[in-house]
Simulated scan of single mutants.
Amino acid sequence: MTETSAPLIVVVEDEEHLAQGLLFNLQAEGYRTHHEFDGDSALAYLLNPKEPIAAILLDCMLPGADGFTIVRALRAAELYTPVLMLTARSRPEDILEGIEGGADDYLAKPFDLNILLVRLKSLLRRTSWQNTSSSVAALPAPSDQPTEYSFNHRTIRFDELELVAPNRTTHLTLMEADLLRYLTDREGQIVSRKEILEQVWRVHEDTDTRAVDNFIVRLRRYIEDDPANPQHLLTVRGVGYRFLANP
């Protein structure tokens, strides 16, 4: 891989020692890098990049615009560059706010560098599945998982991170696609809020489960003919949710 073809990773981190460590190790792995210290300059750069960005490592707490504001602005502008958010270990609410805002994955500080690199490569694989001309070598999807799921004239394309409906195609974040896969794999079964937190989002702390409810509301806008009267993604009062392909 030549230097000019190497994926560009943008690091948005205001802690100097952490940022320099990330930049050094990313470059050692063969990536090109760009660094922004504060949220306002990062947002300006990310909304108008001078070249394609492969992925963003985004701290949630920054001077100026915070990471949550940045990821929401990117998604509102229909920019779906993969975002790996870096969160404080003691704040599970950061994780959920990032998920709701449109982040694709998260990693709690302090983190192991090897885990960060694995998560990053996973996000880049997703991009390569969507775009065969990506500079990252395309890898096949796991053979034991379906790449599509169809119901009610809609098709979820898990590898492409898309939900195709008769009148529109909706881009999905990685975590939206992961939750839809988890629910469709368990079609007809009741899935608790706690199970979603722990098995899909890997949040093990005591956390306000209303974040799950807010997320479900957004998914209903994608998959229901009438989101106010859902037929597929049903609430099981006091427990969680159940997905039905054919109500």
Rank of each mutant, 00 (worst) to 15 (best):
P7W: 09
P7F: 11
V11M: 10
V12E: 04
A19F: 12
A19T: 06
G21Q: 09
F24L: 15
N25E: 13
L26F: 08
A28R: 14
G30I: 04
R32G: 13
R32N: 10
H34F: 13
D38M: 02
D38E: 15
D40Q: 07
D40I: 00
S41G: 01
S41W: 00
A44V: 07
A54T: 11
D59W: 08
C60Y: 10
L62M: 10
P63V: 03
D66V: 06
G67M: 06
F68C: 12
T69S: 14
R72H: 10
A76L: 10
A76F: 00
E78F: 02
P82W: 14
V83N: 02
L86D: 00
T87K: 03
D94F: 07
I95C: 10
G98S: 07
E100S: 13
G102T: 03
A103K: 02
Y106N: 04
K109S: 01
P110M: 03
N114D: 13
I115E: 15
L117A: 04
S122P: 00
R125S: 13
R126E: 12
W129F: 08
W129D: 11
N131H: 12
S133W: 07
S134T: 02
P140E: 11
P142R: 05
D144C: 04
S150R: 12
N152Y: 10
T155I: 06
D159C: 13
A165R: 07
P166N: 06
R168E: 14
R168W: 10
T170H: 00
L172Q: 00
L174D: 15
M175P: 03
E176H: 05
L179Y: 15
R181W: 15
Y182H: 15
T184W: 07
G188R: 01
Q189F: 03
V191M: 02
K194N: 09
K194R: 14
W201F: 15
V203G: 04
E205G: 03
D208R: 07
V212T: 07
V217A: 08
R218Y: 01
L219A: 06
E224M: 11
E224T: 09
D226S: 13
N229H: 14
L234P: 05
G238C: 09
G238P: 08
Y241G: 01
